[in-house]
Design a protein around this nucleic acid. Structure first.
Lengths: 104, 104
DNA sequence: GCTTACGGTAAGTCATGGCTTACCAAGAAT
DNA sequence: ATTCTTGGTAAGCCATGACTTACCGTAAGC
């Protein structure tokens, strides 16, 4: 739900791989596990973490669960990034402009 | 250097706190450590991780080292995010539009 | 009904990494 | 030159978490 959990969730390489596969196209768990170097339960556990972070959601299709990226989750991350991006660019501009003290 | 290291680096709460403080304004190590619930060596170690990820850089000022965010590092992350953002929005649009197969 | 595919959960193992204290190098100050 | 500040590094401890196998529901197929 918060960008913090999203960052933690995306920190793990396997989980990032899963996320990117899902972002490319929604997929069922089994298909994900096949294209991954870890077991299916591991994939399930990763999906739970991604889900708790609000980054993915799943649609039930019979016995299958099709996982897809949740746009709002990504949006949270984007907002966080853009917020700091703005800050950093301000500092950067100050450096270039000689950074005269306008604190007085 | 890659977005992957950036994500791993920003996953840790303390490290994220350090990063955000630096994004707000460049700071020396000591000042960061004071405003943080961990020891100064811990801060140094976190700064090394952030630095290796290309997210921060430091300017030497006498005995001080002033750390600042490296815009290019943030840019890498932004590009990664935007790339997947585009994908996800495409999928989302397909869902809404009824997802007729235009694969033919 | 029974069996097979699909997938989430439990329990246990083991590596990663975040933290601490102790130590050391380099610059500033007197 | 000695002392104090600043901060990076080393060694060691311990919690977190990623992975495995085993198990259990549930839906589909025969």
């Amino acid at each position: 739900m918060a960008y913090q959990e999203s960052l933690s969730a995306l920190a793990d390489p396997t989980r990032r791989q899963i996320f990117e596969a899902i972002a490319d196209a929604p997929r069922p768990v089994g298909e994900l596990a096949q294209s991954m170097p870890v077991s299916r339960p591991a994939v399930s556990q990763h999906l739970k973490v991604l889900s708790d972070a609000g980054l993915v959601m799943c649609r039930v299709d019979g016995a299958r669960r099709i996982y897809a990226v949740r746009p709002e989750g990504l949006a949270q991350l984007r907002m966080w990034l853009d917020r700091h991006w703005a800050n950093v660019m301000d500092r950067f501009a100050e450096e270039i402009n000689g950074k005269e003290g306008l604190d007085d």
